[in-house]
Amino acid sequence: MAQMTMIQAITNALHTELKNDENVLVFGEDVGQNGGVFRATEGLQEEFGEERVFDTPLAESGIIGLAVGMSTQNLRPVPEIQFFGFVFEAMDAVSGQAARMRYRSGGRWNAPMTIRSPFGGGVHTPELHADSLEGLMAQQPGLKVVIPSNPYDAKGLLIQSIRDNDPVIFLEHMKLYRSFREEVPEEEYTIDLGKANVKREGNDITFVAYGAMVHAALKAADELKEEGIEAEVIDLRTVAPVDIDTIIESVEKTNRAVVIQEAQKQAGIAASIVSEIQERSILHLEAPVLRVTAPDTVYPFSEAEEVWLPNHKDIVEKAKQSINF
């Protein structure tokens, strides 16, 4: 076992799969000699060669289109979009093509690619670097969307994503890259896609979160404990497909829920989870299911980030609103 940051766990997972499967290719802007702008691919070109780990010309639609084509040649591409806001450049290749490859060929072809990309707020990036666009991705049938909240999960989920035979969008929250270390086994292991993780047990209220918001939810739970309120915290790990069973089991125990996302409120993952809960468990609910989200503006210019982003205080407030309903 070793102590790793999330970025190290990601490098470790890429290394594992490059070694396990010669069809795995890692490519994108600056991922070769430079090792990626966050150093996620550090040392990989040196070890596996330029044929398997390489820089691309600067064009996101080209990068993902390339991956779609490679899929027909028995390859398993792991392209990187340097920051997820740039995925707009590649929307047709991602949603119009990769996601529909299996469907439009009646199963003759598939697109077993894993698109890795940093995203997430709080690190003062310029426009279109920090946006949470997972809702947009999750709305596209054919894609899976994975968002780890910690180093251990990042490794197991990334290996599983690469092995998955359908396209996976693997989103890495920038704030979590180096914010803490934890034990991560050197040997390989996988974590199933579509399975949530109960990070903390409690009987009074359920928090459903993913990515960096898992940590805000845990912090809120700590604060509430001092007032005698026990929150259960669910880390979704995969936002498409969502692990409804785990959520429902928890909500039917606590009878209250707050769904938390860093993204804006309109449409979105949280809205869809709220619907799922009320459709299945309305008679178990003691209060409306509430959401904690960012407001419905474009992701803010960085000076306003701190106020704009949801935080643990917002979660505590909503939890109390639910409990006092």
Partner: peptide, 12 residues
Amino acid sequence: DKQKVTDLISIM
């Protein structure tokens, strides 16, 4: 003046 979220809402 510090940029406010309400400023950003108003220019949407």
